[in-house]
Amino acid sequence: MPRSQLEVNVPAWNGRRAAAALRQVKAAGRRERTPCVLCRQPIDYSLPSTDPDGCTVQHVKSRKLFPHLTWSPSNWAPAHKSCNSSAGTGENPMEPGVEFEDW
Results as ranks from 00 to 15, higher is better:
residue 81 K to N: 14
residue 86 S to H: 06
residue 103 W to P: 15
residue 38 L to H: 03
residue 89 T to N: 11
residue 99 E to L: 08
residue 3 R to K: 15
residue 19 A to Y: 02
residue 75 N to Y: 05
residue 41 Q to F: 01
residue 62 S to E: 07
residue 12 A to Y: 06
residue 54 G to K: 09
residue 74 S to V: 11
residue 46 S to Q: 13
residue 40 R to Q: 14
residue 9 N to I: 10
residue 73 P to I: 03
residue 74 S to K: 14
residue 36 C to A: 02
residue 63 R to E: 04
residue 93 P to N: 09
residue 20 A to V: 07
residue 16 R to W: 01
residue 19 A to R: 15
residue 53 D to P: 06
residue 3 R to I: 10
residue 42 P to H: 04
residue 40 R to H: 14
residue 33 R to P: 02
residue 96 P to W: 02
residue 32 E to N: 12
residue 26 K to T: 15
residue 94 M to T: 13
residue 56 T to Q: 12
residue 18 A to K: 07
residue 57 V to G: 12
residue 19 A to C: 09
residue 86 S to R: 14
residue 10 V to Y: 03
residue 103 W to H: 10
residue 5 Q to V: 10
residue 65 L to R: 15
residue 81 K to W: 01
residue 71 W to D: 01
residue 70 T to R: 04
residue 22 L to P: 06
residue 45 Y to I: 10
residue 27 A to Y: 01
residue 93 P to F: 04
residue 10 V to N: 11
residue 2 P to F: 05
residue 12 A to L: 12
residue 88 G to P: 13
residue 72 S to N: 15
residue 79 A to W: 01
residue 70 T to E: 00
residue 28 A to T: 15
residue 19 A to L: 13
residue 26 K to D: 04
residue 92 N to K: 11
residue 89 T to E: 07
residue 56 T to Y: 01
residue 48 P to K: 11
residue 95 E to D: 10
residue 35 P to K: 00
residue 89 T to R: 09
residue 53 D to E: 15
residue 61 K to L: 10
residue 3 R to E: 09
residue 10 V to E: 13
residue 36 C to I: 00
residue 82 S to K: 15
residue 44 D to Q: 08
residue 42 P to K: 02
residue 35 P to W: 00
residue 56 T to E: 10
residue 90 G to K: 00
residue 53 D to N: 14
residue 69 L to F: 06
residue 49 S to V: 05
residue 87 A to D: 14
residue 101 E to N: 09
residue 88 G to R: 06
residue 89 T to D: 13
residue 77 A to V: 10
residue 52 P to R: 05
residue 21 A to V: 03
residue 103 W to D: 14
residue 73 P to Y: 00
residue 18 A to Q: 12
residue 62 S to Y: 03
residue 1 M to H: 12
residue 101 E to D: 08
residue 14 N to P: 00
residue 90 G to I: 00
residue 12 A to D: 13
residue 22 L to F: 02
residue 47 L to Y: 06
residue 24 Q to R: 15
residue 13 W to E: 08
residue 34 T to N: 03
residue 7 E to D: 10
residue 56 T to S: 10
residue 47 L to S: 12
residue 18 A to Y: 02
residue 25 V to G: 02
residue 17 R to I: 01
residue 13 W to N: 12
residue 48 P to N: 09
residue 53 D to K: 09
residue 37 V to S: 08
residue 13 W to G: 04
residue 44 D to P: 11
